[in-house]
Design a protein around this nucleic acid. Structure first.
Lengths: 120, 120
DNA sequence: TGTTGTGTACCAATTGAATTAGTACAGTTA
DNA sequence: TAACTGTACTAATTCAATTGGTACACAACA
């Protein structure tokens, strides 16, 4: 379910955060689904539990998951949180557009690149 | 000519590198134009000369500038180097497209965002 | 010639973020 | 009670970025 990519340049914490957001966006997880426990996921990824807990804390802070002591962490049903994720994705993508343009790519170039990228 | 943005998340070195690439792409600098000296730019940016020199070394390594001991550093005329910059910009942008899609944005969404971004 | 400005090459030290390691506490479930 | 969950700390480590400093080689110029 979660697979780390050490070549991505992203920190472990970031990757865990983003992966659960993706799983929701892709429909592979739904609101209410339970996440692996902090310790279990840390063990599976061969990573320190603190790192996973930090990722879960970020997700909970953003309203994407909710955690209950003694029970576990669950994917939130709150659509507002997922709207916020979408907002951030748009902002990040817009920044990428600006960067690409500043390096000489035209609007047509960018549209072509978007369309060339297959939707999996 | 060069202005640092500490909120950008980019390192000083990265910002210097990217800024000169931009200046060339935007036509504000041409092949043969002299860059500020390592020490002068470092002083202007209130930054360590080593940091600027590292940026210049990266630019020279990529063929974007060439440096002559005792004379200075100059923007290269080599189009192949600038083609490589374009290649990298395309690769980076494609990665941004994938990320945005994984977070739930559709192809239409992305095209809209590209077109919404004014060309300055 | 000497001086100044240029790029280049080191090295030691510092800073900050990310991660690890370890311990402890609180709540749930069986 | 025992075994699981999340949470909250602190200390140590690692690594990249940056700083501070010194030194050398070359070019331009008075």
């Amino acid at each position: 379910m979660i697979q780390l990519d050490y070549k991505s340049g992203q920190s472990i914490c970031e990757q865990v955060v983003n992966r659960f957001i993706q799983l929701k966006a892709l429909g592979l997880m739904k609101g209410g689904d339970q996440l692996p426990s902090v310790r279990a996921l840390a063990s599976q990824l061969s990573v320190n539990p603190n790192t996973v807990q930090k990722a879960y804390a970020i997700l909970e802070n953003a309203g994407i998951i909710y955690s209950v002591k003694g029970k576990g962490s669950f994917l939130s049903d709150d659509e507002r949180a997922h709207d916020a994720v979408r907002q951030k994705a748009e902002t990040d993508f817009t920044a990428a557009v600006r960067t690409a343009k500043s390096l000489g790519l035209s609007q047509e170039d960018l549209v072509t690149l978007v369309l060339k990228e297959e939707t999996t």
